[in-house]
C-alpha cells in the first residue's frame, strides 16, 4: 500500500473540493481498504465521507424513500419502511457479506463496489479492468463466476452487489454531485457494460460523489423476493441471484419487476422477461418462457454454462412463489 494523505471533511462541498484535487472517496472501507492493501488500487489522498450528513433515510411524500449514501447496510436492512415496503431490498442486504461487514459498508459504497473476479484482484495476472490493454485472464481461466450476459472479449467480470439487484428492479435514481454540480442518474444508467473499456465500472465522472439513492414507490413491492445462490450457505458472493416483485390479479400478471445478479458486468434488469410477462397468465410455464427469452442472448463459456439453467430455475421458483403468496 502506498502512503496517502487523509482528510475528513464535514460538508459535501468540502469533500467534493478535496476529491477534485486528487482525492479518493472512502466510505465504509470494506472494498477500498481491501484493494489498497492488495495493491490493485492506489490513492494519494483519501477523503473520508463518514462524517458527512449522508446517513439519513427519509420518506418522500409519494411513499418513496431517499436513502443517504452513507447509510450502513445493516441500518438500511432494518429500517421499518424498507423491510415492509421493499422486503427484497432487506433480503438482498442480509444475503450479502456478514453481520460485521454490513455494519461497516455503506449504500453508496455498495453501488460502487468492484468485481470479485479473481484475476482483477491478483496484480500478477493480466486484467483489462485493472490494467487496460493487458488482456483478460478470466475468459479462458477460472470462469465459474464469469458473466453470461453483456460480456465482451475484453472482460467477463460480474458485478458483485446484492443490494444493486433489487435497486435495479425498482427504477431507482441515484443523486450525485461533482465539481460541475448535482445530477440524477437512472439506476440502469449508472453501471456500464464492459465493452472495450472494462476499466470503467460506472458512468460517474471523476470526482462525483453519490449523495443518495431515491427509490420511487411501488405498491406491489410489498410482495417481492430476493433469492441468492452461492457456494456456501452464507458469507459468499452470488453465483447468481434474482430480485423480483410481482403484481398478480385474477391469475394474470398485471406488473412485474425482475433483475438478475451474478450474470453481467452490471446488475441486470430483465426487461425482455418483464415485457413477456405483463398481461400473461401467472404460471410456471409463462415464467419459464419469459426468462428463456431474456436468456436468449446469453453467451456462457465452458465453466459458467450452468448459470443459464440456474437462472432460469431460480426465476421460475421466485415468481411462482410470489404468485402463490399473492393467492394466499
Amino acid at each position: 500500500m502506498k502512503p496517502f494523505a487523509y482528510e475528513r471533511p464535514t460538508t459535501v462541498e468540502e469533500a467534493v473540493a478535496l476529491a477534485a484535487d486528487g482525492g479518493t472517496y472512502l466510505a465504509g472501507g470494506t472494498n477500498l481498504v481491501d484493494h489498497l492493501r492488495l495493491g490493485i488500487r492506489e490513492a494519494d489522498r483519501l477523503v473520508d465521507l463518514t462524517r458527512l450528513p449522508l446517513d439519513e433515510i427519509t420518506e418522500r411524500a409519494d411513499g418513496g424513500l431517499v436513502i443517504g449514501s452513507g447509510v450502513r447496510n445493516s441500518d438500511l436492512a432494518a429500517h421499518p419502511l424498507v423491510r415492509t415496503r421493499f422486503p427484497f431490498v432487506t433480503q438482498a442486504l442480509v444475503a450479502g457479506a456478514s453481520g460485521q461487514l454490513r455494519n461497516m459498508a455503506t449504500t453508496g459504497g455498495n453501488l460502487l463496489q468492484r468485481t470479485r473476479c479473481v484475476y482483477f484482484q491478483d496484480p500478477t495476472t493480466p486484467c483489462n479492468k485493472r490494467e487496460p490493454g493487458s488482456g483478460c485472464s478470466a475468459v479462458e481461466g477460472f470462469g465459474r463466476y464469469n458473466a453470461i450476459l453483456g460480456a465482451s472479449e475484453d472482460c467477463v467480470a460480474t458485478h458483485p452487489s446484492d443490494l444493486c439487484v433489487p435497486l435495479a428492479a425498482l427504477d431507482t435514481e441515484v443523486v450525485v454531485v461533482g465539481p460541475s454540480g448535482e445530477r440524477r442518474i437512472a439506476f440502469g444508467d449508472l453501471h456500464r457494460l464492459p465493452g472495450d473499456r472494462p476499466d470503467l465500472d460506472t458512468t460517474l465522472d471523476p470526482g462525483e460523489l453519490v449523495l443518495a439513492v431515491e427509490v420511487p414507490p411501488l405498491d406491489f413491492a410489498v410482495r417481492s423476493r430476493y433469492r441468492k445462490v452461492r457456494e456456501r450457505a452464507s458469507y459468499a458472493f452470488a453465483l447468481v441471484s434474482v430480485a423480483a416483485a410481482l403484481d398478480v390479479h385474477d391469475g394474470t400478471v398485471r406488473d412485474v419487476r425482475l433483475a438478475l445478479g451474478g450474470v453481467s458486468h452490471r446488475p441486470h434488469r430483465a426487461r425482455i422477461a418483464e415485457e413477456a410477462l405483463r398481461g400473461r397468465p401467472a404460471t410456471p410455464d409463462q415464467f419459464r418462457s419469459a426468462i428463456e427469452a431474456e436468456l436468449g442472448a446469453a453467451s456462457p463459456g465452458e465453466h459458467n454454462a450452468f448459470k443459464v439453467p440456474l437462472v432460469r430455475n431460480t426465476v421460475v421458483d421466485v415468481l411462482t412463489g410470489l404468485t402463490e403468496g399473492s393467492a394466499a
Binding site: G29, S98, Q100
Partner: peptide, 26 residues
C-alpha cells in the same frame, strides 16, 4: 486482513465490525 474470516471482529460503539478493514483515522 481482507474481511474474509472474522478473526479481527471487535465491538465499536456497540456494533461488531471487522477491524482489518477499518482505517484507524476513520
Amino acid at each position: 486482513d481482507h474481511g474474509q474470516c472474522g478473526a479481527c471482529t471487535v465491538i465499536v460503539d456497540g456494533r461488531r465490525i471487522l477491524s482489518c478493514l477499518a482505517l484507524a483515522a476513520s
